[in-house]
Design a protein around this nucleic acid. Structure first.
Lengths: 187, 187
DNA sequence: CGTGGAGTTGAATACGATCAACACCGGTGG
DNA sequence: CCACCGGTGTTGATCGTATTCAACTCCACG
């Protein structure tokens, strides 16, 4: 259950390690248009913006961009869930202005085993869940959102009334009912 | 810059304090329909669900509920941003099944001053930002989302092309342009 | 039994997407 | 220096999808 993020936070909390971590962060200049991370890349870095502006975004099947986040001065940006777990990024990141950034490397926060910290695990996971939900709102149709929901939370579908699922998906109960009708026909 | 959440995580990371924190969490049974938190209440507690299911939600001006999150077994639920900062909750929380939960009290994690931990600050803030964005997607019209955006990020509005703002809001550039046209007329 | 909430279905309406045309720069190359 | 071009933003017409309102069914629970 120990996660990478535990180590990161651990490091951040113990002053000496925090110091080591801070001094390891290199400052870098990037030009408008530079791509720092692509979907599918391992999320090895997280960026802290000192000056300028970055953005993270997805590209859907039709080639349309959906901006997940802007990061002007003072913001951090990265695919946090993927960074924490050492997985592949869902997001692209690029510079929309010439920028000065600090780069936090995943490898710097050398992962040693630390007991699981339940609250932190859940906090990172929560971030991931929210990120996915926002991307779904921006890029998916109601039908896709519903299919994703029953895939992701098959247990909840059984347990809560349909109108609550509609409420979660951001649509009226009637609309969800009709989508379900359509799906039943096709099947 | 020291935040409450630092203390929470600090506590969670130092084994003795973790122990203290864990033993302070009381287990409680709640019945379907019980309301645990109301919008406007101070967010003094966060809940860990052992059995059953809770939900968090908002109620808009028209009285319509928008479910932000379901929390079945193994999930934690609360207005994390408000809990971390000791502010008033944006969310309601109630039980949608008879449930057994563990209650983490804000006061238990006794806040002493600890140096700021930049990454954690940003992580909590990020959570808050994502939460708000999802609620806007569920409950607000495009016009409201746009007005909220220019209020929340007045600097970004000036700096990025309009089509990127449309992309962030989850609509086409044409739709945003028309909304702006409408707003200009009214003024 | 009956009653009320949940879900379905249909008709009318509203809102954003799509497609297309055009105006307005800002930059590049002739 | 100017002409051209591509990208950005605006506007209009049409189409599709979700909302709203209403009627009806079906249970679950009193």
């Amino acid at each position: 259950m120990a996660s990478f993020f535990d180590n990161m936070i651990d490091s951040a909390l113990i002053p000496e390690r925090l110091q080591a971590l801070k001094s390891s962060m290199i400052t870098k200049r990037v030009s408008k248009g530079d791509i720092l991370l692509r979907k599918g890349d391992r999320a090895e870095k997280t960026y802290f913006v000192k000056e300028g502006c970055l953005r993270s975004y997805t590209i859907d099947e039709k080639g349309k961009e959906h901006i997940f986040m802007f990061a002007p001065e003072g913001w951090m940006i990265g695919d946090i869930g993927a960074f924490a777990k050492g997985k592949h990024s869902e997001l692209f990141i690029d510079a929309i202005e010439d920028s000065e950034i600090e780069v936090l490397n995943r490898e710097v926060v050398n992962p040693t085993n630390v007991p699981a910290h339940e609250a932190i695990e859940k906090l990172v996971n929560r971030n991931y869940v929210l990120q996915k939900r926002i991307i779904m709102f921006m890029s998916a149709t109601l039908q896709e959102r519903y299919l994703d929901f029953i895939e992701t939370y098959p247990d909840i579908v059984q347990r809560v009334p349909q109108k609550m699922i509609a409420s979660y998906l951001g649509v009226t109960p009637e609309a969800l009912s009709k989508i379900r009708g359509d799906l039943a026909k096709v099947k």
